[in-house]
């Protein structure tokens, strides 16, 4: 893997992207790598475009911010338009099917994250975990075992099964491409 991989997870406030970022970073640590997680931090607690950023590396991470993401996940069009400006030309853009696909030269993976969370898993609220499944399969940045362990350690006990199901649906969606 690269010395330093930069991932940006974006969507609207309240979609649980910061939690997703934390879980992704924890999965990387479980894999024995270094990880730094940070977030944009606005005054609004809900709504608006929000992002979480994770840097994963085999060596020490000094500069803690994402400058040119290798991967951008966007769950809403607003977030995609706001945050794709500095995605690397060879980067990967993962977007929800509800978003109009941009005419960019990035590698684009468009999958029905929100719809699957709502209809297959049964709760739109687990879209963040489902997205992590997609991202894991599409990038191989963290191992499936570690992301599963990290998810189960972070989510509330009574939602473990639901989140596990979401993660596995994400794995499936990530693999289909």
């Amino acid at each position: 893997m690269h010395e330093r991989v930069e991932i940006r997870l974006s969507g609207s406030g309240g979609q649980g992207l910061i939690l997703a970022g934390i879980i992704l970073a924890e999965a990387a640590i479980l894999d024995g790598k270094n990880a730094v997680q940070s977030q944009s931090y606005g005054p609004e607690a809900r709504g608006g475009a929000s992002r979480a950023e994770v840097i994963i590396s085999n060596i020490n991470i000094d500069y803690p911010k994402v400058s040119n993401p290798d991967v951008l996940l966007a769950l809403t069009e607003e977030a995609m338009l706001k945050y794709k400006y500095d995605l690397q030309q060879k980067g990967l853009l993962i977007i929800d099917s509800g978003i109009e696909k941009p005419e960019d030269s990035y590698k684009i993976l468009q999958v029905p994250i929100l719809e699957t969370a709502k209809n297959q898993v049964g709760k739109i609220i687990v879209a963040n975990i489902l997205a992590l499944g997609v991202l894991t399969m599409a990038t191989g940045i963290v191992s499936k075992e570690s992301i599963e362990k990290a998810v189960l350690e972070r989510v509330p006990k009574r939602t473990k099964e639901l989140n596990k199901k979401a993660l596995y649906e994400g794995f499936k969606l990530g693999k289909t491409q």
Partner: peptide, 10 residues
């Protein structure tokens, strides 16, 4: 500073 305070790190 805000960066060190809010970032999560191994």
């Amino acid at each position: 500073d805000e960066v060190v305070a809010h970032m999560r790190e191994k």
